[in-house]
């Protein structure tokens, strides 16, 4: 039995598919592709699928992945990719099918490109960079704890291009600490008044705890 990782983008229309819906949709896409994916055994067999570090609704990504199993001895990865792409929903493009290197739980950080065309974005970035501290409350399973975002992300670099203001951020995305970019942007909304929903969020890379590229 081989476990293989299907890498895909999740952009545009597809950024509004929740994890639960994505699981069902991906199952149907795999079924339509006719690829020899492995079904769980038992009374109600279904396709084995594990998603890595799922995104929040409305965010986009170039580096989503789902692990499936197959009894094929040496799967032709290029063939898998070519059969999957035509059956995917709009906004989902399979970029790579590959053997699993890291375990899903090894993900520790994620890189995001965050941008807006609404006036005021640059000022919000500047205000953040000048701040000494930005405390936010973060709900975990057991309790609410306060963290200082400035400790995690001391400053960000704004790039301006026409009316577009862009910055990059690497944030914890592991099982011990996970800082969703919306946590950052919501806190900016509260502190500097720039509406969080005006930002666009694109995930561009995942890293392990040793800052190796997750693959």
């Amino acid at each position: 039995m081989n476990t293989i990782r299907i890498w895909f983008t999740k952009e545009g229309d597809a950024s509004y598919i929740s994890l639960l819906d994505l699981q069902r949709a991906m199952g149907r896409c795999l079924k339509r592709s006719g690829l020899p994916v492995w079904y769980t055994q038992g009374f109600n067999p279904h396709i084995y699928m594990t998603f890595t570090c799922p995104l929040s609704l409305g965010q986009e990504s170039l580096v989503e992945s789902v692990d499936v199993k197959t009894e094929e001895e040496s799967p032709d990865f290029e063939e898998w990719k070519n059969r999957l792409n035509p059956v995917m929903p709009g906004g989902i493009r399979v970029t790579k099918v590959a053997p699993v290197v890291h375990k899903g739980e090894e993900v520790a950080f994620a890189r995001y490109t965050i941008w807006t065309r609404q006036p005021g974005g640059e000022e919000a970035v500047r205000a953040y960079n000048q701040a000494q501290q930005l405390l936010v409350e973060k709900k975990t399973k057991r309790a609410v704890k306060t963290i200082d975002l400035k400790e995690i992300l001391p400053r960000v670099e704004a790039h301006l291009e026409g009316d577009k203001c862009t910055f990059e951020a690497v944030l914890p995305a592991g099982k011990d600490l996970n800082v969703n970019p919306t946590l950052l942007l919501d806190s900016w909304q509260e502190a500097y008044g720039f509406p969080a929903r005006n930002w666009n969020i694109l995930r561009t890379q995942l890293y392990t705890g040793k800052m190796e590229i997750f693959c």
Partner: peptide, 9 residues
Amino acid sequence: PGRYTGGEP
């Protein structure tokens, strides 16, 4: 929001 986006297979 998925009600309003289209793009379904």
